[in-house]
Design a protein around this nucleic acid. Structure first.
Lengths: 340, 340
DNA sequence: ACTCGCAACGGGAGCGCTCCCAACCCTCGT
DNA sequence: ACGAGGGTTGGGAGCGCTCCCGTTGCGAGT
């Protein structure tokens, strides 16, 4: 396949035109010190005139770095693509990365073939580090990246594992404080709609719910727990079930704002007033939470901070070589609005 | 920043170990012909033993190609990230690209700084071609890419422009056939909920709607047209308005399935039966269309084909150098389910 | 006036691959 | 037996940068 681009000027040509040496042009391009201002200007003009653009392959080869990091989304979480959490995370990573001069490359890995291809891409040196969206417990990708000694940071743990760097929100604490708040308000029959329980984050939120009940000396009943898959529809269904099982229900912690929105609809359909009859708390604090009726109380995940922390950890690993694993758990915040 | 990876074996080392020359190893790696089977095996073993991975920067530099293409999403369409259309397109592009050995890199461009950075990345030769999600009319990115002579294919036109390659669905024809179908069923007060009218695709669908009415000798009334922004919520609102303005309404073409879903809710709330009182047709045929009650008739966009066509055009441009603009308009298909 | 020291600058030596041509080794055909 | 012609193979010549060290130029110090 002949996909060459014709007649691109090289560093050498720029140097010739500006009447200087290659080294000087390189210094100007990389904003390195030690170039007289007048020289710098002359070089800049030559660059302009020739419409010179550095060849990144050559730079990579000589400089042994790619100036790019990959954000990998694996199949199981592919659906998260269609969720606000994902686009918010991408946005925040982009912001955090924006002044490092590195490109953020989003890659999806849906099959083993694609996993393999990405691995070759990464091991081949096209990226300096990898950010991984919470992968499933069984996924070998993080280990493969570690073997290749590629700096890697996970978003969200997969379990209690330690041998990988990750950034996560304090899901347990967030859920616990939300439920405690409900109990403090005098709610006594508090249910929870969980996320898919094969996800560690969902397990943590459930644990937080249970801890709060225990702390208050209450016994968590099995029948007050319903599982959802984070969608509004499943939230609606779970809520309807809960109402049926416990007509006296007066508080709910949902696995996400989307789920909570579904729950609100089910409550409305059942003729329950929110927050008078039933208080509802969501999770995430997406923009959606401000557009429900009533506006949703929720546990805020610090998305900006998550993005910043991930980038920081990755840069640190890149700096020092992947010699240690770093973990950051970020505090969540209870945002009270109208639904409690 | 010292982000080097240590002690990676090189082609040369593999060659030495296998007792052959560099050229031969290269041929084996690239599956080129002209290597004796026994030699090939020996080389493969050496590669295995050394865990050799080709350095892609070196390959790029020597081979003058990147083996990667970028899919760029610009800010105005950023929200489409959260829409099924987007994830479906990405999926289909990934499939179409999968046996070319090229990496699909998703990039988002939200600001001028990011636009500039991406341009340097692309012009720097890190990708061989660029796929652009339907950008707004004013965006200069396609022109900048064209100037840099980078093979580029747009998804969706921005207007009537010709000087760029694109793949698009026949939005006009799709809308027209949907409305014609409604009229053929005896519907007489047919409305449409459009998408944002600063998007060319939305304009086209509106045009198709109008053409069908004209064709049937009917006059399209202004008041039968309501604008939405593709979300369910705005669809609901638009539908409610339309009912108010035209209580005798008996048919609706929505701008998307999502919008249609919102419209269905509004109709239900207003006590109209679908399809007995009002027939509804959506657009896109996303999975969602099969999960509404009643299941949605819709105009199917051939997403698989769109993805394949985009990749095909891009490969052609890469092959021949961007010397011509290619346009592909794909036929849509009316899928009749329960809502008509 | 002469030396010293430092800021600026030039360019050799790679980085690890692909391309390509020359060299080599067989196996036929005669 | 010997040369022709094919299939294989080796390795030189880059690709366009960065790194780094040696060199140059110039003002200050004595």
């Amino acid at each position: 396949m002949g996909r060459r681009r014709p007649g691109t000027p090289t560093l050498e040509e720029v140097a010739a035109r500006a009447g200087v040496g290659r080294g000087t042009v390189s210094r100007v391009i990389n904003n390195a010190a030690g170039v007289k201002e007048s020289t710098r200007r002359a070089v800049r003009r030559a660059i302009e005139e020739l419409e010179y653009v550095p060849n990144l392959a050559a730079r990579s080869l000589a400089g042994r770095r790619a100036d790019a990091v990959a954000l990998v989304v694996t199949e199981p979480d592919w659906r998260s693509f269609a969720e606000p959490f994902f686009s918010e995370i991408v946005r925040s990573l982009g912001d955090a990365l924006s002044d490092t001069g590195m490109q953020l490359l989003l890659t999806l890995v849906r099959s083993d073939a694609e996993r393999q291809r990405f691995l070759e891409y990464a091991r081949g040196g096209r990226v300096d580090g990898v950010l991984l969206l919470s992968v499933r417990a069984g996924d070998r990708l993080p280990d493969m990246l570690a073997e290749a000694r590629l700096p890697t940071v996970l978003l969200g743990r997969r379990s209690g594992e330690e041998y990988v760097s990750y950034v996560d929100a304090d899901n347990i604490g967030g859920a616990r404080s939300a439920v405690s708040q409900l109990l403090r308000q005098g709610r006594r029959v508090v249910a929870t709609i969980t996320g898919p329980l094969d996800m560690y984050a969902a397990q943590c939120r459930l644990r937080g719910y249970q801890e709060a009940l225990t702390l208050a000396g209450l016994e968590g009943e099995q029948t007050l727990v319903a599982e959802s898959d984070f969608t509004a529809e499943s939230g609606r269904r779970a809520m309807a079930e809960l109402i049926e099982r416990h007509p006296d229900i007066d508080g709910v912690l949902a696995a996400s704002d989307t789920t909570a929105a579904g729950a609100l609809e089910a409550l409305r359909a059942a003729g329950r007033r929110v927050p008078e009859d039933v208080a509802v708390i969501g999770f995430d604090d997406f923009p959606l939470a401000q557009r429900t009726t009533p506006r949703l109380s929720t546990v805020r995940q610090p998305i900006e901070e998550i993005g910043r922390a991930m980038v920081r950890l990755l840069l640190e690993e890149m700096e020092e070589g992947a010699v240690a694993w770093r973990h950051v758990i970020l505090r969540t915040e209870l945002v009270l609005r109208e639904s409690t």
